[in-house]
């Protein structure tokens, strides 16, 4: 037992130090590509840190969204940057600042960072040895929440506004991207046989996993965000293999899917308020089914929204070279 505690302690310290080193390298790297790869590695190790803290829900979300999707978004952004400035080198341009100003700035920065370190150390020293937090209250009321996973109970019932506002933020982000840019042509080149086969094998499996995560969220680690992230990974994989949403899809159907989760959430709370409940209050007898309903809608919307973020703009209603899109359409959902 003694050696095991020592081992896990050593592991945690190594993990923490590696995290800090990776964060520093990712920020300080002049090569943007290197920075992104380090950031992805940072996200994966961060997920491991959440596992060590007994928070598998956050670990899943961190690995899927923090490392996977954000990494894909950053790489996509870098590809666009490079396409925009082909002649420039990959190194980010660091503008030379006047020397005296730099000194003042770095002095100030070091001072602020030291102040932060002092405050953090103070906070850690001041921490009560065993803080119970709110977990006792959550455990007491878990039967009224409709689910048995305390994380889902907190996110979808006790603090439902958390999820509601997160989905609003995602919607706002995708609205911003849609109003700023138009996606005109398929980004990827011909995917090739291997990637094609991989996507054929993985897409159904990923959809299955997404459904599993959604379902399992009521009693174990999982839930709408994790399921949505896996759906989004499916979307990103499809986009990378050269698939583009058909022309029939990018108009109202896509808009509908983008707002679907938020709309269902708001509609449920409004209807309940009509029956006398207060804002975001679910009656215990219905809570389980309502949470499942909201989560299904939320997962769909989150998946579509994150994929739309990766697409990086408003898809053109009619793709210019329709041959490719048509070919892809035959394997996907058929417009009737």
């Amino acid at each position: 037992m003694e050696t095991l505690t020592l081992l896990s302690w050593a592991f945690d310290v190594t993990l923490g130090l590696t995290l800090m080193w990776l964060a520093w390298r990712a920020l300080a790297s002049e090569d943007l590509f290197k920075g992104i790869v380090l950031f992805i590695a940072f996200g994966l190790l961060m997920a491991l840190a959440w596992v060590r803290l007994d928070a598998p829900d956050i670990a899943l979300a961190e690995a899927a969204i923090g490392a996977g999707l954000t990494g894909a978004l950053l790489l996509g952004a870098l590809a666009k940057l490079e396409a925009g400035a082909e002649s420039r080198s990959r190194r980010s341009e660091i503008l030379p600042r006047p020397a005296d100003k730099t000194k003042v700035f770095s002095g100030l920065l070091v001072f602020l960072l030291l102040a932060l370190v002092v405050m953090l150390v103070y906070a850690i020293v001041k921490l009560p040895p065993l803080a119970s937090g709110l977990s006792a209250q959550v455990a007491e009321n878990i039967t009224a929440s409709g689910v048995s996973n305390p994380v889902t109970a907190t996110l979808l019932n006790f603090r439902a506004y958390d999820t509601l506002l997160e989905m609003a933020v995602l919607l706002l982000a995708v609205l911003g991207i849609r109003s700023l840019a138009v996606v005109q042509e398929p980004r990827g080149r011909e995917p090739g046989a291997v990637l094609d086969m991989l996507s054929h094998l993985l897409v159904p499996l990923l959809i299955l996993v997404s459904g599993y995560l959604l379902w399992v969220g009521s009693y174990a680690a999982g839930g709408a965000f994790q399921a949505g992230a896996v759906l989004a990974a499916t979307g990103v994989l499809l986009l990378l293999t050269g698939w583009l949403p058909g022309a029939w899809f990018v108009g109202w159907p896509l808009r509908f899917l983008l707002i679907f989760g938020l709309a269902v959430f708001v509609a449920v709370t409004l209807v309940l308020q009509l029956f006398g409940a207060s804002f975001l209050e679910f009656p215990p007898s219905l809570a389980g089914s309502l949470i499942l309903l909201i989560e299904v809608a939320a997962a769909l919307s989150i998946g579509v929204t994150l994929t739309a973020l990766f697409l990086g703009g408003r898809p053109q209603p009619e793709p210019p070279s329709s041959g490719r899109a048509e070919k892809r359409n035959t394997s996907g959902t058929q417009p009737s």
Partner: peptide, 16 residues
């Protein structure tokens, strides 16, 4: 199996 599939595909893509 999934990692075998993914890693061999990615290796193929990198080499290509």
């Amino acid at each position: 199996v999934l990692i075998l599939l993914a890693s061999s595909s990615v290796a193929h893509l990198v080499v290509r």
